[in-house]
Amino acid sequence: MKVVDLFCGCGGFSHGMRKAGYNIVGAFDFKPEALAVHAANNPALGPSPMPKWMAHRYRKKREFVHADLGNLLQWVPEISQLKPDVIVGGPPCQPFSPFGRRGGDNDEKSLLSLAFTIITTSVHPRFFIMENVPELQKTETFRKVTELFRNSGYGLTQRVVTTSDYGSPQNRNRLILAGCVGETDGWLNEYLDQTRHEHKPVIRDVLGEGFGPLFFRRGHYAGQRRSFFRTDERCPTITSTTGRGTRSPYVLRPADIRVLRSVGEGITVLGKGPDYVPQAGDTIPARNLPVGGQEELALLASFPANWKWAPEGGRAPTKADVMQMIGNAVPPTLSEAVGESLRLYRIGKMEETPDVPDSIHPLFYEWLRDDKAFDETRIESVRRHGARARALVAPRALSMPEQELKAFD
């Protein structure tokens, strides 16, 4: 099964699909830094280079602005030539993400979800899997996206999954929209259930006992959201800013105090002695808190330990680049499970194929044996494959092998 990964970033989706046994034949993204990391970890592949005019625009604006139809004219034929069986991808979700600035439907990046859809419906592979934030479902963009997919004959599975059900200790909700040509809605649901992991990992499972009992991740918002987590809990969503915010002091919130008390861990409060029991409102220096470095955050995002974040040759990505790649990536364990679900669906489908009475004349098999010198195993294979092929063309009630062959093609 050939897979094309759109908006591939550093390769989280591709990696999981590869582990599930798929062949990644193309990976596309706007960010050269991310593509370099993708290439370093998928040496067999060589991601498609960004068109030059696009690279220019990207450098100039540091952001891809006009996803005009000109892009599609360039990309659709290129991707079509790769003849993928599956198109996967997580179009940029920032316009709809609850983290950071939200432009929603009016954000120009929201056009990239539509670009994914238009490319997919034009190339028209049998399957596609799109990943995004659940908030997308409430948008006008999503309405358009699903309408386009339906118009081109895809049955849709629309499902919000939690990454901790699929091997990553993050409590991260993701929308999976999966399409299959000619299927009924919900076609992948039971297989997504089957591939759910039994064990929901916690922070400690990934970082080990050595990390200590606490994990600090500065809350995004002012207010009551805590920033301390026990390492026997799951961790909050890793975003591009997860490692930041340790230079300025942190003011403890009541929810933090509850976590600190539950592990009985001492935290140094500015201007107080070591025996002081921290209270909400106390200021602590954030410099020495157990934040987790880049490597640890990548592990929490379910990347393998040997993932190369600094490709040889070329410019090394900055720390911020890498954090953005990790934050934007589809957790590989999730994409692997999605790929496995698709595999199970296909196996189930094959088993369902009805037995068609073998309408071929017995002389055919004699001919195979005597004239073509086929052995019994090979004759049996022809019988089986012929029956399956004929099941596909059976509704057309054709009698001649010539017509059947044409219909099959």
């Binding site: 002389l363 055919f364 001919w367 073509k372 494959h385 092929a389 092998p401 059947e404 062959l405």
Partner: peptide
């Protein structure tokens, strides 16, 4: 798999022409 199915169809066609 698809190739095997096509081959089976093709063999039947070839036989019908023989």
């Amino acid at each position: 798999d698809q190739a095997a199915m096509r081959e089976a169809m093709y063999l039947a066609y070839e036989w019908s022409q023989a």
